[in-house]
Each structure stands twice: as C-alpha cells, then as structure tokens.
Design a protein around this nucleic acid. Structure first.
Lengths: 345, 345
DNA sequence: ATGAAAGCGCTAACAG
DNA sequence: CTGTTAGCGCTTTCAT
C-alpha cells in the first residue's frame, strides 16, 4: 500500500498473471471471465489498492460517469436540498456529481463548457434559469441537459420543477379566503420564468375572485431580501398600501417583513405576508412564514432520473418535456384576516 | 462551427497545414514558434472553435488544472462566501474549481478519492474538520491539500481560518464589560477543533475577569439551530440560568433566541446572546445578532493561495502551517447589561 | 523552427 | 475464456 504513484491496470495484471484486457473484463464484465481468474484479479486489486483511472477510461470511452451541476449561486437556500436529491439519484445509478459555480458570470460558464467539451461530464443539470454560456445555438454540442428549479430561459431544455402557477394560486386563494381584496404581488415577472408563472397564478386567483385588474398592485422585485424591502418602501411612498403582500419567494417576504417591522407594524395584525419556496429559515422568522413548499429533494431526484434516462436512451435534449411537481401550502403565522381599517373601506 | 463532435488538435493541424506538435507548441509555448506559423494556427483554432481536451491533456501530463473543494454540507451558510474567495483566487492562476459534496457520508468521500486518484484534480480543499475518506495514512497518495474554515482533525494538514480563540475572547470581553458575570457557553468543544478553540477564548476571558471555573456554565451543542434550543431547554430545566449566552456559532444563537422568545423573554432585556461567524441571517434576526465576523472571502483567498503555492513548490502537504485571520466583533442588538434580577444577586 | 513518434491508462474489437 | 493490439487526444523528447 501507500506507494509513490497509484497502481495501474498493468500492475494488477502483472500480479494476477493475466493480461490487462482480462483485468478490465474482470472488472466490467465479470461474467465473461473464469471464476478462478476473477479471483486472482480480485486479489491483485486488493493488494495494489487499484482503482480505475477515471480519466483514462473516459478518454477512451468518450464519456464519463460524472454529472455536472451548474449553479449561478450556491448560496441559494433552495440549492442544497435539491442537490441532495440529484446526488442520491445519480449515485444509485453509478454516477457522481460535481458542482460548478458561475457566480452569475458568463465568463465562468465558459470554463465549465470546456470541462464538458472534454467529456469530463456525461450530462448537465442547470440550476437556474439560464444557459450560463450564451445562447444554446452558439455552443452546439452540449451533452444531455436538464433544467431544474427554474425553467431554462434560452433553449428548449427539459425542465423539472414545481407547478408555480398552481402554487401561487394556493397562496392567493388563502389570502382571499381570509378576506383580503387588495393584495400586492412582488416579483420579477418579466425576466424570470418562474416568477412569471407565479404571477399568472396570482392573476388567475384574483380573476376568479372577481377582483378587477385595476385593483391589483404589482411591484418589481428580483427575489432578494433587499428587493422585498425596496418594493415595500415604494408602496409606502406612493401611499398605496395593500392589506396583504404575496411575495414571489421567501426571501422577498423576509424583506417585506423586515421593512414592516421596522415601521412598527404587526404581522399578521396589520398586514399579511406570504412567500414561496419554504426555505429552511421560513419557520424561524417571526412570525413564521406562511408559504408554498417546494418538494426539493423530489425535484432533484426526478431531474436526475430524467437526465439519466436521456443518457441511456441517447435521446436528444431538445425535448420540450416539463415535469411539474405539486406544491403544497404551508400555513404558519404570517396570514390573518385584514385589519379593521380595511374592513371599513 | 457546430459540428457533430468537438474539434481535435488534429483538425487544427490539418487546417493550419502544420503538425499537431506545432499546434501544441503554438498554444503553450508560442515563443518557440515562428510568427507566421502562429498566425496560421490561431486562425485554424478560430475556425474550428477548438479547445484543448482537458482530459487528454491531464492524462498525458499526469495532473489537471482543477481544484476539488470537498464540503460535507453545502448548505452551511459560511460556505458560499468562502467558496467565492477560493474560486476567484484559483481563476486568477488559471485553475478551475469543482465542488464535491459528501453529505457527511464517508462512502461519498471515497467517490472523490477516486476522482483524485485519476489526477482529475491537482489539489484539494477541505471545507470542514475531517478528512472525508478515513484516516490520512490509509489513503496515502493525496494531492496537496489545505483545510479551510475548520482545522482538519485527523491529519497534519495546513489550515487557513479565523483566530477562534481571539474571536471568542472579544465576545466574552464585551459581555463582561456590559456587566455579565454568569455567562453560558454552548458548543461542542470535545469533537470540533474550532469549537474547542472558541471555548478556550471563553475560558481565558473569564479567567481574566477573575470569574472562577465554578461559576461557568458549559453546555454541549453541535452547532445546529436545534442544538441551541435544546441546550436552552436543559438550562431551564436545571433552573440554572446565566444572564448571557455565548454561543459557539450564529446558528446556535438563533436556536437560543427562538427558545427564549418562545418563553416570552426579551432579548437583550432579559438575556444577552452572542454568536460567532456573522452569517448572512445574523443581521436579519430580531433582535439582530451581536457576533464575531469571519473574513470569509479572505479566508478562501488565502487558502487557495497557499494550496497553489504548494502546488508549484512541490511542497508536501505535511506542513503544520496555520494561517489565522483576525476576527472582528460586530456589535448589533442582542447584548445589553444584565437585567436587574442579576444586579441584585 | 518543425515533424515523427512514443506513450499517459484504459477499453473493445479481433483472433485464437 | 484469454491475449494482442489499436487507438482516445494530447505533450514532449529527439531528430532534422
């Protein structure tokens, strides 16, 4: 053990007194090798501590057994649980997962493109909303690829995520059932597909409740805590306040709640707030946040399953597949009936 | 552009009407190639969109230009900022970063060990506390390796992090200056080296203040939110309450604050709380958390710089180097003088 | 300044 | 059932 350089297939062959081809077979197609030979090889492997040089193997095969997960922001509170789903599914099928972090810089994306071009990864999972290396057409020969968590904007890439519209609808419906009529939506429905769909759920809910478009407040917000606080400030400045804030995600909701508390308001006494995602912090905020839960691990699992299926089928990534999982409403303490000031109007 | 399979060095050679050796030289040692030739090669590269097959290159060279960052828990709120430091420094030196996630399972570590054995990574950054693949001696031929954020328990591996003892000392000193005499420490000082050092800072501070060991309360807690809440409950059960909680990290502090609020206490009116790390949420908690800031990006940068230095020096990873960065006290709203009930005693 | 050729470690025909 | 052999795409002597 503990030699200067790792054992190669040749070392194993020498010790087992067989050819390197036989070693390779003993490993990958043991049924094609005599039991006695297999035994000798196994022993030699144990002695040398041999592990296949994945690089040489991949070079030879023209493909690897690694899946690259590209994420623009690894700090996203949704990421880690989705990743666990991805990893476990991959592992169950003999694949490993590597994570690439682009920090939202396209330059960084190119780095991973090179990685892919070298067949260092067999497939690609895209964690948010965009192809990190320019438009699809430009990059041509991408391996099979699946988008997760947020539909991929610029390329017909299969997608696994939550049913955003249905989820948002559950949130509005709750608010409406509590008696709210003036409900603000905060999110970036122009750039982000997921936000857009949540917005659609919001509109559908208000339509169904017979609330005219004129009575709706829609604020821009890119989904950060800051964006929530900002949107709130603008609303106060305009003096056009809703009784409830339906935020496109939990971070935005947190921003809104911070702003509201800073102004001395009580939640849900004075204003109701809902989020979307059910990030881990959601249950620790004060008040705890009523929100829509994403089945994150399940999403990861399904996305990886789809990718692996494409890999074995040789299916092109051009499919317009979308797998939408059911979002659940999580009722906590940030929603109540509108305050009297609203009932009066 | 957009061919069925990526261009190889041979494609480039053919178009440039030179040998593949020349192409390789034109790329890596342009000064050894006639200017005219270099031009032809550059053009051919542009035409074909050629990028070096990193796998073939690494196989030939016996080393890659990727650094593997292994993290047991990617959801750690400290991780993403350290990662950014690591990545930026790596990139500045022509290296890429790949992240491996072990979910705390040793089995998963082995996967990445294989990756390393195949020379798919030139170096290794360990993100928390342990060698994820059993004891050092067992695994023999690891590439250069640097621990970050938490000292590596089981192997003389160089380490870059914050000065835990000094940081903890700043926290106790603040508490003592505010008038606290009975200060509880919550953390896992037996298993986790970082916790252990913070504990040392706590003890040193109390020693300096002349508070006898008998007057100290030390609770076990592994650093999760839950552990904070749990430790608090135990204290209430014992009816042995401090006036201030010095938590080993911000998550623990959050757990303590949640528990305290659930019991109807006011922070910092009834109890003071301090954390350690200054995770992003720290400023959003209510009250905002007084804590010790880790210079995360700087830590990442230094760690990567050290690793790259080892890589070029060929230095062994056996060095006992420790680079300790200065932690800063961040005063927010979770600390005040002890309540009257304490002054009375 | 350039080309020919060896070989990194491995797998998959193809023979035997 | 097993061995021989040809590369995967690249870098690097060694000649020229």
């Amino acid at each position: 053990m503990s030699n200067s350089s790792p054992a190669t297939i040749e070392d194993v062959a020498r010790i087992a007194e067989v050819s390197i081809a036989t070693v390779s077979r003993a490993i990958h197609t043991p049924e094609k090798v005599a039991k006695s030979t297999r035994l000798k090889v196994d022993q030699a492997i144990a002695i040398t501590g041999y592990t296949t040089n994945a690089m040489a193997r991949s070079l030879r095969l023209g493909r690897s057994n690694m899946i690259l997960v590209v994420a623009p922001d690894i700090g996203d509170p949704n990421f880690s649980n989705i990743l666990i789903g991805l990893e476990n599914e991959a592992r169950a099928h003999g694949y490993g997962v590597l994570i690439g972090h682009t920090q939202n810089e396209p330059q960084r994306g190119l780095e991973y493109l090179k990685f892919l071009n070298s067949n260092q990864a067999a497939g690609l999972i895209l964690f948010t909303g965009i192809l990190p290396f320019g438009h699809r057409a430009m990059t041509a020969r991408l391996p099979p690829c699946v988008g997760v968590f947020e539909p991929v904007f610029n390329g017909g890439i299969p997608y696994v995520g939550v049913d955003d519209a249905a989820g948002a609808r559950k949130a509005v419906d709750l608010l409406i059932a509590e008696g709210h009529r003036k409900i603000a939506f905060i999110g970036d429905s122009r750039t982000k597909l997921a936000h857009n769909r949540r917005r659609a759920g919001y509109d559908a809910g208000l339509d169904a409740a017979g609330i005219p478009a004129a009575g709706r407040i829609v604020m821009e917000g890119d989904g950060t805590i800051e964006s929530g606080r900002l949107a709130l400030e603008q609303l106060f400045m305009r003096d056009d306040l809703p009784s409830a804030f339906m935020c496109v995600n939990d971070q935005t909701a947190l921003g809104v709640m911070i702003g509201l508390k800073a102004r001395g308001y009580d939640i849900p006494g004075d204003f109701s707030v809902t989020g979307f995602d059910d990030i881990p912090q959601a249950s620790f905020m004060t008040p705890s946040l009523t929100t829509i839960r994403q089945p994150r691990t399940a999403i990861g699992k399904r996305a990886m399953a789809l990718l692996l299926e494409m890999l074995s089928d040789g299916t092109s990534a051009e499919t317009e597949t979308e797998i939408l999982l059911r979002p659940d409403l999580v009722v906590r303490n940030s929603v109540a009936a509108p305050s009297r000031q609203w009932a009066a109007r």
